[in-house]
Design a protein around this nucleic acid. Sequence first.
DNA 1: ATGGTAGCAAAGCTA
Length: 267
Amino acid sequence: MTALKIASWNINSVRARIDIVERFLREEQPDILCLQETKVVNDIFPGGIFHQLGYTHQILHGQRMHHGVAIISRIPIREDAESQWRFDWQDNGEARHVGVQLDCGIRLENVYVPAGGDIPDAELNPKFGQKLAFIERMTRWAEQISQPTLLVGDFNIAPLECDVWSHKQLLNVVSHTPIEVEALAGLKAAHDWVDLGRKFVPPPERLYTWWSYRAQDWAASDRGRRLDHMWASPEVAKLATAHKVHEPCRGWLKPSDHVPLVTEFEV
DNA sequence: ATGGTAGCAAAGCTA
């Protein structure tokens, strides 16, 4: 048995955030870091800094301006047939997924689900329909999974009442609407996924991973939501030994509005 | 009831 530590973080621009990513890697020492919203094309991804820190394996899927995902690792990670490992679940070319194979036999999938716009109505707001379609395509994919898998990333949905600061006030706010929660439940059932956040921090305990930039004092108002998740195949979930949400990162200089999730495994 | 902030990249889009 060897220890394996995997982190996931919506970084909201890896270039603007390079100092705090470096601090996080030095302090937390994950073996693998999955990033979402890197906001950079592959050519100018700041890979040299990560390489110096020992993260010599880097699988990038970036694009200009928005979105973008990456997996950086200090242990080997492998891509197989490239198209197989970069799903386009929105069918519009946006860079929102990258997946790799680990030597221990686990498949690691890093996803950035679209936010879905402001209006929770697919007729009035096409982005909301695209978000639901994305989850639907993920569900079809999940039904066919044949390997032990860890699915991590920014799902942009907070499913439980204790995943948001006010269930009542967010019922009609995109990220916590019943239609999104139902779609996410369908995805969860499609592979019998284990929600590692709630395995380690059971309801009704408060658990958030995101706080808006628009609050005057994010910590004082604490109007958070749990938008980021780590879901494991049942056999992978059994290997998990610890899990945490790094809330202090929200208070670091020039923070992301999301904080990192970290899970430790014995594989 | 509204607007509040942030990054990219060069005005508005996405979040």
